[in-house]
Design a protein around this nucleic acid. Structure first.
Length: 518
RNA sequence: GGCGGCGUAGCUCAGCGGUAGAGCAGAGGAAUCAUAAUCCUUUGGUCGGGGGUUCAAAUCCCUCCGCCGCCA
């Protein structure tokens, strides 16, 4: 029997449909898409999931406001997120919506399992509730409003509510969670976030309210139609729904997921509640949750009131899809907050892409096109300088990038690739094929060949981050599809020499620094 | 208030016990194959303040100041 391919399952959060897609959503999904593409090219059987969270009171209210049914409403607005996938060239294998039948069934299945195991019980929830925030507040968090009403810290009015609710026995899972963290030191990254998670759990867990009777736009609780499931179980379950939970006992071989990518604001749900639900249901927790940071825009928080929210379409218009993908992953150590400064984006894109990799390819290939009858020269004997560059290209680059990406260190991975770009630019200047043209055309051919090998491998490895540009570069070498995966980053897949190339075209356009709008 | 993190060149950050580093920005030079791109050299820091441990501290300890995160 042939060994089945290794599986890799990566997920984005499901995005709340009441939002419009912006840089934050885009960032999360870019990161996942890069990992998914990387793993595919590296020979894995990949499942990459994204989707939308479509239940809850706010959605229902928005639908009412729009004068349509919640289902019609979510059909419309979830399309914004499906469009984003096309726009940003995401390669998701599935797009899940929490309103889908398969998800409702999976949630109900999970619920029943939890209930049978005694992990869920019915009780009463009482407290000060803010409709606007969909949240309860502690007495001491509240202040007195002008009309005698109590006001939440968010400024929303609260009222005393008593509500029947199902509870999940989260308190019973405190020690098991801590043991799990102890035995899985890489479960959560970055490390400082993991420390926060641990200290939260150590400080004591209360049982978690997991149903609501105050609205009905949600997954009905099996056997009690008054209740719908509250956000935790409904939303988090999407990750196993898409793997076939409740239908396929093997979950396609994709569970436990390799990575849940989340923003730091929803880490707790993923690193505490979710593993607790899963363990309680007898399912393995995911292998890793990564909490990435947020983007400031020109030093300011992104907000509707400031009006600086960046829409994906703006980014594409200004920079193009690939350059955007590159910039957000290269500019900031992944996990940190970033500051999206347009001048920096232009600078980096020009330096790294246009002047770095783009110009390297262009100067090499157009030299060949003009001076070698459009054919890649065959190499003669290799010098120490040739072998040194090729060793970086064949032997060092991919393992380094692999290692960095397995820790979600995108900026380091890209840094490692660009070390090779820079080395190749140093190489071409030292070897100076334009001078060899007059003195030693055999040596010139070898130099150009070595450069082609470097550019070929760079083009392959750049594909996950910049799929279109990587393809454009590889097209310049007229490489067939099967020569574009990571296996071909090797001497075995090397060009032979004699391959004809088309007239090269610049792949990474140079950007103009715009006048700052007042 | 409790716990944790951070403060290093103009900017973003690496280094975390052994002569202060990278990228970008700035300055000078070389080259001219290339998207006027590239390459080389170089300016620049009493590593937040103070105290301590050590032969030796950006690196360990204490304290103060300033940011930030999580929790209450």
């Amino acid at each position: 029997m042939p060994k089945s391919k290794d599986k890799y399952y990566v997920t984005t959060p499901i995005y709340y449909v009441n939002d419009k897609p912006h840089l934050g959503h885009t960032y999360t999904t870019i990161a996942c898409d890069v990992l998914a593409r990387f793993k595919r090219l590296d020979g894995y059987d990949v499942k990459f999931l994204t989707g939308t969270d479509e239940h809850g009171l706010k959605v229902k209210q928005s639908a009412e406001k729009a004068g349509i049914s919640p289902q019609e409403f979510t059909d419309q607005v979830s399309q914004n997120f499906r469009d984003l996938c096309g726009l940003m060239n995401f390669s998701n294998d599935d797009f899940i919506r929490t309103t889908e039948e398969r998800h409702i069934k999976a949630c109900q299945h999970l619920w029943k399992v939890l209930e049978e195991r005694g992990e869920i019980y019915l009780d009463k929830y009482a407290g000060w509730y803010a409709v606007r925030d969909e949240a309860y507040y502690q007495e001491d968090e509240l202040r007195e409003g002008p009309n005698g009403k109590k006001i939440a810290p968010s400024g929303a009015e609260v009222e005393w509510m008593e509500e029947e609710s199902y509870f999940f026995r989260l308190s019973a899972w405190q020690d098991k969670l801590l043991e799990f963290y102890e035995s899985h030191p890489d479960f959560c990254l970055p490390e400082t976030r993991f420390n926060e998670v641990k200290s939260f759990v150590r400080s004591g867990l209360k049982d978690l309210s997991v149903s609501r009777t105050t609205f009905d736009w949600g997954v009905p609780v099996p056997g009690n139609d008054k209740h719908v499931m509250y956000v935790w179980i409904d939303a988090l379950t999407n990750y196993i729904t898409a793997a076939g939970y409740g239908v396929d006992p093997e979950m396609g071989g994709y569970w436990p997921a390799d990575l849940h990518m989340v923003g730091k604001d929803i880490l707790r749900f993923h690193a505490v509640y979710w593993p607790a639900f899963l363990m309680a249901a007898g399912i393995q927790p995911p292998k890793r949750v990564f909490a990435h940071g947020w983007w400031l825009i020109e030093g300011e928080k992104m907000s509707k009131s400031i009006g600086n929210v960046i829409a994906p379409a703006d980014l594409i218009e200004r920079y193009g899809v690939d350059a955007t993908r590159y910039f957000v992953l290269r500019e900031v150590p992944f996990g940190n907050d970033g500051d999206f400064v347009h001048a920096n984006a232009v600078n980096r894109i020009n330096n790294d892409l246009a002047n770095g990799l783009g110009n390297l390819a262009q100067r090499t290939l157009s030299f060949i096109y003009k001076n070698c009858e459009g054919k890649i020269p065959a190499p003669a004997e290799l010098t120490a300088n040739d072998t040194a560059l090729l060793a970086k290209v064949y032997d060092e680059m991919l393992p380094t990038v692999r290692r960095e990406l397995d820790q979600q260190r995108f900026h380091k991975a890209l840094d490692a690739i660009w070390e090779v770009v820079n080395a190749a630019n140093v190489y071409i200047d030292i070897e100076a094929p334009w001078a060899l043209k007059k003195t030693d055309t055999v040596r010139m051919g070898t130099v150009l060949y070595v450069l082609c090998e470097a550019i070929r491998c760079l083009s392959i490895i750049v594909q996950p981050v910049m799929p279109k540009s990587g393809k454009a570069l590889l097209d310049l070498f007229v490489l067939p599809e099967e020569k574009r995966c990571f296996q071909s980053i090797s001497r075995d897949a090397a060009l032979k020499g004699g391959e004809e190339i088309p007239q090269p075209q610049g792949v990474f356009p140079r950007l103009q620094l715009e006048e700052k709008a007042a």
